Structure formats: C-alpha cells, structure tokens
Simulated scan of single mutants.
Amino acid sequence: MSFIFRRLFSTTSSTMSDAAQKKAQQLIDENAVVVFSKSYCPYCNNTKRILDGYDAKYKAIELNQIDDGDDLQNALQKLTGQRTVPNIFINKVHIGGNSDLEAVVKKGKDGKKIEELLKEAGAI
C-alpha cells in the first residue's frame, strides 16, 4: 500500500511541478517586468520601491499569498538556480534579486542602464 501511495504522490508532485514551471514561464513571457515576491520581505519591498521610482509597469507575484506559491518558488529555483525572493525578470531576462537590481541601477547590465532595459521591455 505505501508503494502505491509513494508512486501516486511522486506522480502528483511531478505534475504539480510541471504546472508550476509552465505558470512561472508564462508569467515571465507575458509581462515586461515580473517580480516574484513575498509581501513581508523587506528586499522585495525595496525592489518594488525602486521600480515604482521609475514609474515602471510590473507584475508582482506575492508567493506567500497564492496557493501555489511554494510550487512556483521551487519552479523558479529550477529555472534560475535562485530560491530567494525577490526573483526579478525584465524583458524575459533574469536579473536576480534585490542586490542584483540595485547593481543594474548603479552600473547597468550588459552595457545598458536600468532606464534603457525598462524602455526596451515596454515597462516605461
């Protein structure tokens, strides 16, 4: 009996993981800027303040406020190697976390300043 339960649970976990990976990728693909966040996280709140300072349009996904938040966070770890939040994407490119965004603001990324990245994404 336990073998059947483990087999069923394993299949269900895999299916949930696949669904979460598809959902995460869809959110990244459909939004110029997406921030996977937790509402209580000070680094996430700082990231949103930075983006608000540029009047950027972005989608914030509060992982702690949705039913599949843990699954999405696991999917993002598989996708990016990063488990922590915020997990930021601009124009489908993984930026990283809050300190990575701060570095882009100060120094740019691939020779582009934050304003240029946001404009190219259609977020400002």
Rank of each mutant, 00 (worst) to 15 (best):
residue 42 P to Y: 14
residue 123 A to P: 15
residue 51 L to C: 01
residue 89 F to I: 09
residue 47 T to K: 07
residue 83 R to T: 14
residue 117 L to I: 06
residue 5 F to G: 09
residue 15 T to C: 07
residue 56 A to K: 06
residue 5 F to V: 15
residue 104 V to R: 00
residue 30 E to R: 13
residue 2 S to H: 06
residue 45 N to M: 09
residue 39 S to W: 15
residue 20 A to S: 13
residue 24 A to P: 09
residue 5 F to E: 15
residue 3 F to L: 14
residue 97 G to V: 12
residue 56 A to G: 13
residue 124 I to H: 07
residue 16 M to I: 06
residue 37 S to F: 08
residue 120 E to R: 02
residue 115 E to V: 03
residue 75 A to W: 12
residue 115 E to K: 00
residue 124 I to S: 10
residue 101 L to Q: 05
residue 102 E to R: 13
residue 95 I to Y: 07
residue 107 K to M: 00
residue 9 F to I: 12
residue 2 S to W: 06
residue 3 F to E: 14
residue 65 Q to G: 09
residue 26 Q to T: 14
residue 111 G to T: 07
residue 102 E to Q: 15
residue 86 P to K: 08
residue 22 K to H: 12
residue 98 N to R: 01
residue 74 N to A: 13
residue 76 L to P: 00
residue 29 D to L: 10
residue 74 N to E: 03
residue 30 E to S: 15
residue 36 F to Y: 09
residue 107 K to L: 04
residue 2 S to G: 13
residue 19 A to Q: 15
residue 98 N to Y: 12
residue 97 G to L: 01
residue 19 A to F: 10
residue 2 S to K: 13
residue 79 L to E: 06
residue 115 E to Q: 10
residue 22 K to D: 10
residue 64 N to W: 12
residue 55 D to S: 11
residue 45 N to Y: 03
residue 77 Q to A: 08
residue 45 N to F: 08
residue 84 T to G: 04
residue 9 F to G: 03
residue 116 E to L: 01
residue 69 G to E: 11
residue 79 L to A: 11
residue 100 D to Q: 03
residue 48 K to I: 07
residue 96 G to D: 00
residue 121 A to K: 14
residue 31 N to H: 13
residue 30 E to Q: 15
residue 86 P to A: 04
residue 108 G to T: 08
residue 74 N to M: 14
residue 76 L to M: 14
residue 20 A to K: 14
residue 94 H to T: 08
residue 6 R to A: 06
residue 115 E to M: 03
residue 30 E to Y: 05
residue 59 K to A: 02
residue 72 L to W: 00
residue 74 N to D: 13
residue 122 G to K: 15
residue 123 A to T: 04
residue 83 R to Q: 11
residue 44 C to D: 04
residue 86 P to L: 04
residue 36 F to D: 03
residue 58 Y to P: 15
residue 80 T to Q: 05
residue 29 D to V: 10
residue 19 A to I: 07
residue 18 D to Y: 14
residue 14 S to P: 00
residue 10 S to T: 07
residue 41 C to Y: 05
residue 101 L to A: 00
residue 110 D to N: 11
residue 53 G to F: 01
residue 27 L to W: 04
residue 27 L to D: 08
residue 1 M to V: 14
residue 87 N to A: 12
residue 1 M to F: 05
residue 95 I to A: 04
residue 117 L to Y: 03
residue 48 K to R: 08
residue 94 H to V: 09
residue 64 N to C: 09
residue 61 I to G: 09
residue 24 A to D: 05
residue 63 L to F: 09
residue 124 I to L: 15
residue 85 V to E: 01
residue 110 D to V: 03
residue 90 I to V: 12
residue 113 K to G: 09
residue 79 L to K: 14
residue 115 E to S: 07
